[in-house]
Every structure is written in C-alpha cells, then in structure tokens.
C-alpha cells in the first residue's frame, strides 16, 4: 500500500504540473482527492493492512493527500494569476480620457461670504436676527437718530413705497427691532438685502449688508476694536493690518471707519487703494445715546457698539471682482467660477 500511495502521489503531481488550465486542475482534484478518487480507492484496502502498520499507513495517506492538495492549490493560484493578468490586460483604460464628474452646484458668492462672517461672529457669541426689507421710516431713520431733515439722509438715496414706508437702506433697523424685544445683553448680526437709488459700475440698487450690535453694561470702544480686528484676521488672514479712523454716522458716537491693508498691494499702494495702501472695510461706533433712548435702554447703565459692512464689497475684494453688477447678473459663467 505504501508503494501504491507513493506511486499515486508521483503520478498526481506530474498530472497537476502539466495541467494547462483551471478545468484540468479541477478534474485532477476530482480524480485524486474526490469522494470516489484514487486516494480513497487505495484506502479501501486499509482493512487488509496489519493493525501495527495501519496507523503509519493512515498517516502516510494524509501526507499524500496534503501534498496533492497543496500542488492543486498552488497550480490553481498560478493559473488564476495568469488568467487574471490576461483579462486585466485586455481591460486597460486610457488614463487620459476625461472622467465623469458629478455635477457641482455653487453657493452664491454673497452667501458664501455671509455664512463665513456669521460663523466668525457666532464664535464670539453673536446670533443672527432678521427684519423686513420694506421698513418704516421710523425704524430705518428716525429711531436711528436720523430725523427727516438730517444731512446724513442725503447719502442714503431712499426708495419710497409710500410716505413713512421705505425700502431699508441698511440693515441697521434690525438692531432697533431687536432692542425693543429684549433687555441687554444683546449680541446680534443682521444680514440682508438693502436698497438705494443708485446704479452704476460700483453701485447696485440692491445689495447686501451685515449689521452687528453688542450691548451690555461694560462694552467699550476697545472691545469694538478687538472684535473687528479678530473678524478681519479670521476673514482676510493674520497679516492683514487694520486701522480705525474717526468718521460720522448719526447712530453712533464716537463713530469710526475701519480700513484694512490693501488686499492687492498689501499696503504699498496701487490703483485699487488709490495709492493709499488702505481699503475702507466697514463703518462702526459706539451706540448713540439717542438710539438707546428710542430702544428704552438706559445710557447711564448700558453701552454698546454697532458696525455695518457691505457683504458685496468684501466678496468683491476677496475674489477680485471688478464690478458689483456681476453679483446680480445671474450669469452662470460667473457664478460657477466660485
């Protein structure tokens, strides 16, 4: 039996080595290791072997089975990899052919910047507040210390719906609506559409603004500076320089305009910054006592700061857009660039 098994092993290994395809390997498995295969056939004679020899024969048959099995597996692996390689070679693609791109939508530039600004101030505890686009003259002007004959109204060319009702010229009326509803502390941001009778390459009759307001018992001009500097550094980068200079707004006192170092020349002077190295970024100041009076806040007890910035302008600076009119042209060739 020992000779039989050894001869079978030799024959099987030769057959397997000669197998040219996976089917032949499978047939060899059936022939030698199958339920009715040659090894089983030989082991049928195990009963005739003496009891002393039987364990050795059993062991030998397992060795033979293992050797044949191993040869089968390795031949199969070898043949598979040849077959895979042939198939894969036939499936090679042209790497340079264009891929299928999922279609990509684009958020409008104004909202990209608005969201970024909101997130920066949200980190400082500001929340969003909204108000109507069509406003009363009271909220838009009078409550903000800008009575009818105030010269500051000249710079706000206002759309009227009827006497006393206007398209808001800024989102500042939202601060009054907010202060009427709650006592300090108040920390809000009011983004939204605003309207002015003005239309040329640098003016759109509708544009977007964000107004910010912080009121509490101990808010100072130093806080205003710190808050807005933090904002600029977040939005434009730490290297951006910031300058506050006195200005005039009816609803703040003291009032300031904040400039940032030119985004094009970095402060050396260029056409964009009219060689000054600075770009006007926003208006701000400490809330005027008259505004607090209209809100029912006690000026002796509370102080606060407010700021208002043109989102369009910030967006245009960031993306070097030459004219505001691109923003509202709704030309997909423009919008899909950003």
């Amino acid at each position: 039996m020992k000779e039989q098994l050894e001869a079978l092993q030799a024959e099987a290994l030769d057959t397997i080595a000669a197998a040219a395809d996976l089917d032949t390997v499978e047939a060899a498995r059936v022939k030698y290791l199958g339920r009715k295969g040659a090894v089983t056939e030989i082991l049928r004679g195990l009963g005739k072997v003496s009891a002393e020899e039987r364990p050795a024969m059993g062991q030998l048959s397992n060795v033979v089975k293992a050797a044949i099995g191993e040869a089968l597996d390795s031949r199969k692996t070898a043949l598979s990899s040849v077959a895979d390689a042939a198939r894969e070679a036939s499936e090679a693609v042209d790497l340079s052919l264009p891929g299928r791109r999922p279609s990509q939508g684009h958020l409008h530039m104004v909202n990209q910047v608005t969201e970024e600004i909101i997130d920066i101030f949200a980190g400082l505890g500001f929340q969003v507040a909204v108000g109507p686009d069509i406003e009363t003259e009271y909220y838009n002007f009078d409550s903000l210390n800008t009575p009818a004959d105030h010269p500051a109204r000249d710079s706000h060319d206002t759309f009227f719906v009827k006497p006393g009702v206007v398209l808001r010229t800024h989102t500042s009326p939202v601060q009054m609506r907010v202060m009427e509803q709650v006592k300090p502390p108040v920390a809000v941001l009011a983004p939204g559409r605003v309207y002015r009778v003005d239309y040329d390459a640098s003016h759109s009759p509708m544009f977007n603004q964000i107004e910010g307001l912080l009121v509490d018992e101990d808010v100072t001009f130093a806080d205003l500076k710190g808050t807005l500097m933090h904002f600029v550094h977040q939005l434009f980068g730490k290297e951006t320089k910031v300058r506050f200079r006195p200005h005039f707004f009816p609803f703040t006192e003291p009032s300031a305009e904040m400039d940032i170092s030119c985004t094009v020349c970095g402060g050396n002077g260029c056409r964009l910054c009219k060689n000054s190295g600075w770009l006007e970024a926003l208006g701000c100041g400490m809330v005027h006592p008259e505004v607090f009076r209209h809100a029912g806040y006690d000026y002796e007890k509370y102080s606060g700061f407010a700021f208002g910035l043109g989102i369009d302008r910030i967006a245009m600076l960031r993306h070097a857009v030459p004219s505001i009119n691109h923003l509202y042209d709704n030309d997909l060739r423009f919008l899909e660039q950003f």
Binding site: Q127, V128, V178, V182, A187, D223, K225, G226
Partner: peptide, 16 residues
Amino acid sequence: IPVSLPRARKCEKVFA
C-alpha cells in the same frame, strides 16, 4: 485706544 476681546454673552431670545 487698546484692543480687547469682549466675552461671549447670552441673550435671552433667539431671533432667527
């Protein structure tokens, strides 16, 4: 005028 960062403040109402 120095620069300071105000602490976050809790407002009693959610506006939007």
